[in-house]
Design a protein around this nucleic acid. Structure first.
Lengths: 228, 228
DNA sequence: TTCATGCTTCGGTTTTAGCCGAAGCATCTT
DNA sequence: AAGATGCTTCGGCTAAAACCGAAGCATGAA
């Protein structure tokens, strides 16, 4: 009777509490084993296995076999993007379920969204790249300008490697805390890796929080032309 | 055990086929009665009533009583944004469930997203407003520049009325077909209304498709500085 | 007032999804 | 080769939710 996209199938996959917890745990970007995810979801191993099968079949998760472990991860940045969007919606609808919580401000400031930088810092990076004409909106996508490519290369990014990978280079991703966009895609991921490699910031273990060092912020601002 | 955002509750609301169909039907922006939505979802009246209660309690829909009818509509633009995001995800995961379908290209070109313009035309409008410095990203939101305000007024928009309304003036909204942003918020809605009032485009009945007239496209391009 | 219409509440049926214990495979360790 | 570990499949239980017909409540029309 209906011919539209079946968002119901995907939404109901995310709609189970156990599966939602698994997905949120994987939003930190690191791959987790089936048993870790069972623990995270608060269910027994067989139940978790069932859920993981569904998530995999539904295309939300990808799995990698490694010895006798199976590592699950978010399948694609657009999956992460949808989860961010739902997070934003739930924040909007139920503004304060619990008190803000100690990690909350840190999360809003800077966090990992699957494999790239989100939060206030991520949004400001995105804006700076547009304003500085490193990226230019072009019809259906974002292009890297000539000057932008030069500048990014100077910072230490290997653009040709990024371009060679099959995933899209630039993608916007809606940020739940700021209600603005941040940069996803291959370039977004590469920039985040760079930030960590240079020691400008480090990820808090077992959380999505990203902590910048004092000097790291300065260098980050200088490198990408982010206004402070 | 978990303290994260309750995305499962919201996702499971969207995850029921009947409710998803209702939401998709309402994405055209117009308010529909309970019986129309029952029809749309393919269920009997009592069942629909149950679903609508849940959607309302969940904060996804707002209702307005009018005589003996009850008109339901999407509660907020961020709800529309999340639904768009899920639509995009389902397109990505199941690239071609059915053959493209006749309306598909038209939808990608221009469509209604709740109450504003989306699709290729919407994205290009958004880009043009940024590039033409009518709107300027500013930290957490989008500002209208002084020159931009002048220009928009000349076209025939009543900015003070938009500013007086309680809803945010400018909001970006992620476009599933283009994977880019288009303009939502009070300004986005006002511009779309203007486009229809001036006869540049009209909405196809009972669908989200927006059809521009030949002359309408020209005038639209000229008015907002959209590159062709 | 009386009737019709739109919607909701009530009661009861049926389907399905989530869950786990036990058993089965595969892989690594000793 | 024997045992331990990580994960999945199987079988069966249970609880929840989707569904509708019938009845109840408003509101508008005659």
């Amino acid at each position: 009777m209906k011919e539209g996209p079946d968002i119901a199938a995907i939404a109901s996959l995310i709609g189970d509490p156990a599966r939602a917890n698994m997905l949120l745990a994987l939003m930190s970007g690191e791959a987790l084993t089936a048993s870790e995810l069972a623990q995270e979801a608060g269910v027994a191993a067989p139940t978790a296995s069932e859920h993981l099968l569904k998530l995999r079949d539904g295309g939300l998760l990808a799995v990698e076999k490694q010895g006798r472990h199976r590592y699950y991860r978010i399948a694609d940045a657009s999956v992460a993007s949808a989860i961010e969007s739902l997070t934003g919606l739930s924040e909007m609808i139920r503004p304060r379920r619990t008190r803000p919580g100690p990690k909350e401000p840190a999360l809003r400031m800077a966090r990992v969204c699957y494999d790239h930088l989100a939060g206030d810092m991520g949004v400001r990076l995105y804006d700076a790249l547009i304003a500085g004409k490193v990226l230019r909106p072009n019809g259906q996508s974002l292009d890297i300008t000539r000057k932008g490519a030069e500048r990014l290369s100077n910072i230490g990014l290997d653009l040709s490697a990024i371009a060679k990978a099959r995933r899209p280079v630039c993608k916007p991703c809606l940020d739940w805390s700021a209600r603005r966009y941040h940069l996803a895609g291959g370039l977004g991921a590469a920039i985040f890796t760079l930030i960590c490699d240079k020691g400008w910031a480090r990820r808090e273990s077992a959380s999505r929080v990203v902590t910048f060092t004092k000097r790291g912020i300065e260098q980050f601002h200088d490198a990408f032309g982010v206004s402070r």
